[in-house]
């Protein structure tokens, strides 16, 4: 058998599985977004051109939800990257308890997203949550705050909960990048009189760029797709203060069984995620050459 065909046969099972489980469902969703799909989801009903899209694009709820999703993702991406970077730089130093802290990072990272939501819902609880208890003891608040029932704080708090887990993964990945950095570059720069901040900007950061790109793409995906944390903590409430696109889609599909509109929303989300991922790759890669 020629090598070409042998290679193809080895890949064939994966190709078939991904065709059936990924390509066809994705195309069907794209297809369904152009139709009025019956409630049972079987068949495609009447062709409506781009009516489903017109419906969502003309709808204020859609744009408000998009904005909310982007705000959530922005807090999540910036927070995870900054906290993770700080953690990686810290763990790259020698100090007592370094291994302990490194082990600790695994704890949030190993938690399923839903459990992250449960942990933070309980932590932030308006009646007996620990955060309220501590703020009270420190006299920072005079009465208990219900962070998750307050529309002004709920979105930030859910984003913070998601950041809690992701920052630990980011720290571990960036640390892996830092540890491959040859120490002599740093020492050479330090002999040449470069200060800590200069060395960070001109040596560490460029060195970390590939790792930062990986991490940011991951963050964009998890930030824009986040569902579990919202489901556990707020179910999209209070009102619609934490209803992200993912949650809106879930409700269109499985509560209102509106497959046409749900599919259109899902396609919109996929496009937003794709754009977000591309922006991340473009901005982080271009700077390498500068």
């Amino acid at each position: 058998m020629p090598n070409r065909r042998f290679g193809f046969y080895l890949a064939l099972p994966a190709i078939l599985v991904l065709l059936v489980l990924l390509a066809i469902p994705a195309l069907l969703t794209l297809f369904q977004s152009l139709f009025v799909v019956p409630d049972d989801g079987i068949g495609i009903g009447q062709f409506t051109d781009v009516d489903n899209y017109l419906f969502i694009f003309k709808n204020e709820i859609f744009w408000a939800t998009c904005l909310r999703s982007i705000v959530f993702a922005a807090i999540f991406i910036i927070g995870s990257t900054l906290i993770g970077l700080a953690g990686a730089l810290l763990l790259n130093e020698k100090f007592v308890g370094r291994l302990f802290l490194r082990g600790l990072l695994v704890l949030p990272w190993a938690c399923p997203w839903l459990i992250v939501g449960i942990i933070w819902k309980w932590f932030l609880d308006g009646n007996i949550g620990l955060l309220n208890g501590v703020l009270m003891r420190l006299n920072l608040i005079s009465s208990n705050q219900d962070f998750l029932s307050n529309p002004d704080t709920a979105l930030v708090m859910t984003a913070l909960a998601a950041t809690w887990r992701q920052s630990c993964l980011v720290a571990l990945l960036l640390l892996a990048g830092l540890q491959t950095m040859p120490r002599d570059i740093w020492d050479a720069a330090s002999v040449d009189g470069a200060g800590i901040i200069q060395r960070f900007r001109h040596i560490t950061l460029p060195w970390l760029r590939p790792a930062l790109t990986v991490v940011t793409v991951l963050n964009v995906i998890y930030g824009l797709m986040q569902f579990d944390v919202i489901f556990a903590m707020t179910q999209g409430g209070p009102g619609s203060a934490t209803t992200l696109l993912s949650y809106l889609i879930y409700r269109q599909f499985f509560i209102f069984t509106n497959f046409g509109v749900g599919s259109a929303l899902a396609v919109a989300l996929a496009v937003i995620a794709l754009i977000g991922g591309l922006i991340a790759v473009k901005t982080l890669y271009r700077k390498i050459e500068v």
């Binding site: 489980l21 990924l22 469902p25 969703t29 369904q32 989801g41 797709m225 497959f259 599919s263 899902a266």
Partner: peptide, 8 residues
């Protein structure tokens, strides 16, 4: 996203 695949 899984959301794109879930309905089919």
């Amino acid at each position: 996203p899984g959301l794109v695949l879930v309905a089919p």
